[in-house]
Amino acid sequence: MENVCLRRCSCRCFLKKEVPEEELLRLFQAGMQAPSARNEQPWEFILIRDPLVKEQIAQINPYYRAADGADCLLLLLADLARVRGDSPWWIQDMSACAENILLQAVELGLGAVWLGVYPRGERMRALREIACIPERVVPFAVIAVGYPANALQAVPRFEKKRIFKDKYGIEAGDQYEQQ
């Protein structure tokens, strides 16, 4: 079977089929297994299944339309009370968390799409209001999850010309031909 990373792609159209709780648990476990600077693990989550709340979220931004058709939304939050000082690493921690969830979704045969929130102030404000999120907690991302309505096919993105050897601009050669 091909590497899960190479099969990952965004899914924006979903079947009307409920994702079982056991699979959601695996998504949350994968997210929480992400690497974290200083082991701060700033992540928290809100699972959203209420159709009215999904509809409100879908209206925040035109790119959020997939939220309405997904079985559920995972709202990824960063609790800044878990972050020491003015450390900027929580952004990377949360990104790794989101990617782990997306990869786990592929492994489970689910479709998912990352809907960007942070650092867009208007998106963060809207989600704070909809989900009653306190100020110390940052709405970071929404991941729409469900069973894909159509077969998903990842588009290969590998480009060897983006790989350099030792210094920028020095091509790495032919050892990185796409398989």
Rank of each mutant, 00 (worst) to 15 (best):
V145R: 00
K54Y: 10
L74P: 00
E55K: 15
G69W: 05
E129W: 05
L115K: 13
I57P: 03
A81P: 00
V137M: 10
L52A: 13
I60G: 09
A66T: 05
R82H: 12
I48E: 05
A141K: 10
W90Q: 12
W114N: 10
A105S: 10
V138L: 02
R125W: 05
L110S: 08
L103K: 04
G116F: 04
W90I: 11
R136F: 04
I101Q: 01
I130S: 11
G109W: 12
A78E: 07
G85H: 02
L80T: 11
A149L: 15
E55M: 12
S95M: 02
V117D: 05
V53P: 00
A149R: 14
D93K: 11
Q104V: 03
A58C: 04
L75Y: 01
A96Y: 08
P62A: 10
Q59V: 03
C97A: 10
P62E: 09
R120A: 13
A141Q: 08
E135R: 15
V138H: 00
C72S: 14
A66N: 05
P134T: 07
D50V: 05
L77K: 09
A151V: 15
D71Q: 11
L115T: 10
P139C: 09
A112C: 07
A126D: 14
E99K: 11
E135Y: 12
S87E: 04
I133W: 07
I133H: 07
L47A: 08
G111E: 11
N100M: 13
L127P: 10
Q104K: 13
R120S: 12
D68E: 15
A144V: 08
R136D: 09
N61A: 13
F140G: 01
I48Q: 01
A70D: 03
D71A: 11
I133T: 11
M124Y: 11
A98W: 01
A67P: 06
P139M: 09
W89D: 06
R128M: 05
N100R: 12
V117E: 06
P119M: 06
N100I: 09
G69E: 06
R49C: 02
A81E: 14
F140I: 05
G85L: 03
A70H: 02
L47I: 13
A126V: 14
A112F: 05
A78W: 06
L76H: 04
C97H: 01
L52H: 14
I91D: 01
V138Q: 05
V145Q: 00
L80P: 05
V138G: 01
L80E: 13
A66L: 04
A98K: 01
R84I: 09
D68M: 12
F140C: 02
A67G: 06
N100W: 09
I143F: 04
L115M: 14
L80D: 04
R125L: 13
G121S: 11
V137A: 11
R125F: 07
A112Q: 05
F140A: 03
P139V: 10
V145L: 06
L80V: 03
G121C: 02
V53Y: 00
S87D: 14
S87Q: 04
Q59F: 08
A67Q: 07
N61V: 02
E107Q: 14
V142N: 09
D71W: 13
A78C: 12
G85W: 01
D50K: 13
